[in-house]
Amino acid sequence: MHPEQKEQIIMDDRKLPWDGGCRCGQVRLRISAKPILTMACHCTGCQKMAASAYSLSAAIPSDGFAIIQGEPVIGGLHGASRHYFCPYCMSWMFTRPDGIDSFVNLRPTMLDEPSWFVPFIETWTSEKLSWVSTPAVHSYKTLPAFDEYEGLVKEYLTRAG
């Protein structure tokens, strides 16, 4: 990570709501609350589900997230975390972590305008591909300790403005 990346603007001033959808457009969503944290996950599960080096997430408060068209379906492992996909194009759109109803992990590339997105933390770097780097401010070999999240959210929101 380059030192100048730590001070970058994390989010622009675009006015809410933000709309988005899957690749084919059959499922559309609306975000009416700014993210409380942004992430890149390097775990091998995310690598396989995203068919990429890592997955990206923006934690959106649940009351600021709505499906406005279509009906996503649960896919992936069908386990503790529920991964939602478009039933037609199978785009991985968002995840609802088991037992945590306060936020939705949106794949930010589902937004019509995702250029503001920058991961603030990166997780599971112990499983990342050797050539991968992100501009994340904080890196974790696995996940942050549960008691670290409050401080991370506060720091992210302070930097995001």
Rank of each mutant, 00 (worst) to 15 (best):
E7S: 10
P72F: 02
D19S: 11
A33I: 14
T123C: 00
G161P: 01
R107A: 11
L143H: 12
A58W: 02
S81N: 08
G151P: 00
V118D: 03
E148Q: 11
M110L: 04
G75C: 12
S81K: 01
P97R: 12
I67T: 06
S32G: 13
I68V: 10
G79S: 05
T123P: 03
L37W: 02
R107W: 06
P17E: 14
L157T: 08
T123Y: 00
D19F: 11
K48S: 06
F103D: 13
L143F: 11
P17D: 10
S126H: 08
G20M: 04
P114W: 00
R28V: 09
I10E: 06
W18N: 14
M49Q: 09
Y84R: 05
G45Q: 06
R23I: 15
C41W: 07
Y54M: 07
S52I: 00
S32L: 12
T38V: 01
A160H: 01
C22W: 14
C24Y: 14
R23T: 15
A136K: 04
E127N: 05
L29K: 01
G21H: 11
V132I: 03
V73Q: 09
P97Y: 13
W116Y: 09
G99Q: 14
E71I: 11
I100N: 14
A40T: 04
G70L: 03
M39Y: 01
S139Y: 09
P119Q: 01
P17Y: 10
E150F: 10
K154S: 10
A33Y: 13
P3D: 15
C24F: 14
P87S: 06
Y140G: 00
I121E: 05
S81D: 09
G25A: 13
A160Q: 05
G99A: 12
P61N: 13
E148P: 12
T123Q: 00
W116F: 12
Y88L: 13
P17V: 08
G99N: 15
P17A: 08
D98C: 14
F85S: 13
L37S: 01
Q69R: 10
A145F: 13
C86K: 08
S130D: 14
M11Q: 06
A51G: 07
E155H: 04
E122D: 02
Q5L: 05
K128S: 02
D13W: 00
A80Q: 11
L37F: 06
T44W: 03
L56Q: 07
H78Y: 08
F120V: 01
M1W: 02
S52N: 06
K6F: 12
C43H: 07
E113S: 15
F103T: 09
H138W: 13
Q26I: 15
I67F: 02
E113V: 15
P119G: 00
G21E: 12
P35R: 04
P135H: 03
A53Y: 03
A51M: 01
V73L: 11
C22F: 15
